[in-house]
């Protein structure tokens, strides 16, 4: 590498006053999260070992590992895991790469740049209830996409009702929806890349691509890690877009794990098995995220 990467934070032994204040600074957030987020999660963990309908008067009934055991042999759940995995893996790279490109392009003050950025953020803002109706229509037989294909002399498709197309159609909508927030995060991340490193790189005669590889990317690493981890966490819980576009169909080809969980919890009133599914999904998300974070920190797995 022609230039020095930004200094990586040195590892510091936790000791002395800074550490004490670190703990103090964390206390308010930790208390709140422990009570209002971790609490309900632990409650859910307990429920995952029970059979429980919120409607019942008798309360949860302990069934040990039964819920997990029946998930293990359940082809429907296995398939939903695969679909969720595919969904994450096909949406994530596309979103991040496009968002990074857009962030680089709009990382500059010029007249109207604020409007560009705001426009990109619009999909993230507008509630899905209304947007989904528009997308259902875009994907319909006589919808915009088929009309455009028709103009180009190509045959239209059944975007939401064939097994091959439906998950991809949902993915496209999700990319669209997530683009703005990813871009904005990366844009902010770009600000932490010290300017003088670019100067140094330039002096060393690095071209744009080399500067990107040697300065931008390493400097962006913490934020890029966050963006990827966040996308994994949210994508793996993909639900709303599926709920409004395909209801999990056709043939269950868009039934993600979180769609199953919602159905199990609120259609079938089986909180126990819904919770068990949630914790299997959790393990999956945690696994993927840890890989992403470790890679992001530049460590070996």
């Amino acid at each position: 590498m022609p230039t020095g990467a930004p200094p990586r934070p040195r590892r510091r032994r936790p000791h002395g006053k800074p550490a004490l204040f670190g703990a103090l600074f964390v206390v308010p957030a930790a208390l709140y999260v422990a009570i209002f987020q971790l609490g309900p999660v632990l409650y859910g963990l307990v429920l995952s070992f029970t059979r429980y309908s919120p409607l019942s008067r008798s309360g949860p009934e302990f069934v040990g590992l039964d819920n997990y055991r029946s998930l293990y042999g359940d082809p429907e759940f296995g398939r939903a895991m695969l679909i969720t995995g595919r969904y994450v893996l096909q949406v994530l790279p596309i979103t991040v790469v496009i968002a990074l490109g857009l962030a680089l392009l709009s990382n500059r003050a010029f007249r109207g740049v604020g409007l560009f950025r705001t426009a990109m953020y619009v999909p993230h803002v507008v509630s899905l209830t209304a947007v989904s109706m528009i997308w259902l229509w875009i994907y319909s037989d006589d919808g915009v996409i088929n009309q455009i294909l028709d103009l180009l002399g190509m045959a239209g498709q059944r975007w939401l009702s064939t097994e091959d197309a439906a998950l991809n159609a949902a993915s496209a909508m999700r990319v669209w929806k997530a683009l703005g927030s990813n871009m904005v995060l990366l844009l902010a991340g770009l600000q932490t890349v010290p300017k003088d490193l670019y100067e140094a790189a330039r002096v060393d005669g690095a071209n744009a691509w080399q500067q990107f590889r040697a300065v931008t990317l390493p400097g962006l690493r913490p934020m890029l890690t966050y963006v990827i981890a966040m996308d994994i966490i949210y994508l793996a819980q993909g639900f709303t877009e599926i709920f409004v576009l395909t209801q999990g169909g056709p043939y269950g080809s868009t039934t993600t794990v979180n769609f199953l969980i919602y159905t199990e919890a609120f259609q079938y009133n089986q909180m126990g098995s819904a919770s068990a599914m949630a914790f299997v999904l959790f393990a999956f998300i945690a696994g993927l995220s840890i890989v992403a974070i470790r890679v992001g920190q530049g460590r070996r797995l």
Binding site: A29, P40, Y43, G44, A265, A274
Partner: peptide
């Protein structure tokens, strides 16, 4: 703390 974000809302809704 972060891990709590990876549990679907369906499960935590009722306890909350």
């Amino acid at each position: 703390l972060i891990s709590t974000a990876a549990i679907p809302v369906s499960v935590t809704l009722i306890p909350l």
